[in-house]
Nucleic acid binder design. Structure first.
Length: 292
DNA sequence: AAGCGAACCTGGCTGC
DNA sequence: TGCAGCCAGGTTCGCT
């Protein structure tokens, strides 16, 4: 489900309740998600203060006061919700009163403030792990990750360097988290439309033989940044189950130019009809006329 | 080595 | 109404 903008939306939603909070106790309601929880997971979290919440690509990180980091991935269907004893407003947001646990509630963090943070994940493609802060960058989760697309490193020159010589299509290359980390199926389609580039075009063609940026590389880098920034601003995209932690929907799905719009007209005057194409059992949406 | 398809798992929607 | 089939925002494994 969640790509970078949805993950960032979740992080921002959790921050006012979790940053500075102390974890009173944790209910771990099954032994594994995509991978097993670390040994003594609940016990290691109990009593810890959360000093800050961060994000890297599609991972949320919670720094703990004992020097470890709680690493969280939402997979396809992971979500958080915040509940409070009688319903309460914290930092301008309203949180629902505590209700019964639901199917697929796998982890429940009881904070000493009285707030309760619930992780739900029907498909169990998500994960949680505990990693020493000093080993985070070399951990199995982070060591292979490529550029952070909202950081300062992503520009035309960087894209050209990454894609030079690649024969794989732009779609597959943008999905490859080892190159750029954070894009997924929706925002790849949207960024390619914004840059007027075909998903089937070979990635290497945006660079010169020497690895320098062609105009297409600049356009693509700009499109990626723009679409991600706009989506974060909109609270992400809610197609089926992405919600902000207070239950509000994101609304960037209303701004999709191509995703889910098969058969509808391209938004450009000189565009054609949006097509859907399946790559490795993944839909790609694009305009065959204006994307080259 | 790079590139591609399948598998992991559940729920929701469509069409017969 | 019931059920089979298809689809879903991610990652990883195994085979060319």
């Amino acid at each position: 489900m969640p790509e970078l903008p949805e993950v960032e939306t979740v992080r921002r939603g959790l921050a006012p309740v979790m940053e500075g909070a102390v974890i009173d106790h944790v209910e771990q309601r099954r032994g594994d998600l995509r991978s097993p929880f670390p040994k003594n997971f609940a016990g290691r979290l109990a009593g810890r203060r959360i000093t800050g919440l961060g994000r890297r690509a599609k991972y949320i990180t919670a720094d703990l006061d004992d020097g470890t980091v709680l690493v969280i991935h939402l997979g396809m269907s992971g979500s958080f919700r915040i509940e409070t004893a009688g319903g309460a407003k914290i930092a301008g947001r309203f949180y629902h009163p505590r209700s019964a646990l639901r199917a697929h509630d796998h982890v429940v963090l009881h904070l000493s403030s009285g707030a309760v943070v619930v992780f739900n994940d029907p498909r169990r493609f998500g994960l949680m792990d505990l990693v020493p802060r000093a080993e985070l960058g070399t951990s199995k989760h982070f060591k292979g990750l490529g550029l952070e697309p909202l950081g300062n490193e992503l520009d035309g020159a960087a894209l050209a360097r990454l894609f030079a010589g690649r024969k794989a299509p732009l779609k597959a290359s943008l999905m490859d988290q080892r190159l750029i980390a954070g894009l997924g199926n929706i925002y790849v389609s949207e960024a390619l439309w914004r840059a007027k580039l075909s998903p089937d075009r070979k990635a290497g063609t945006i660079a010169t033989p020497g690895g320098k940026a062609k105009p297409a590389a600049e356009a693509l880098a700009g499109a990626i940044r723009d679409v991600l920034q706009a989506a974060v601003k909109a609270g992400g995209s809610s197609l089926r189950d992405h919600r902000q932690v207070d239950g509000e929907l994101g609304y960037f799905q209303h701004e999709f130019a191509v995703y889910g719009r098969e058969g509808e007209p391209c938004l450009r005057e000189d565009g054609g009809t949006i097509r859907r194409k399946v790559h490795s059992s993944r839909s790609t949406f694009y305009c065959p006329v204006c994307q080259r």
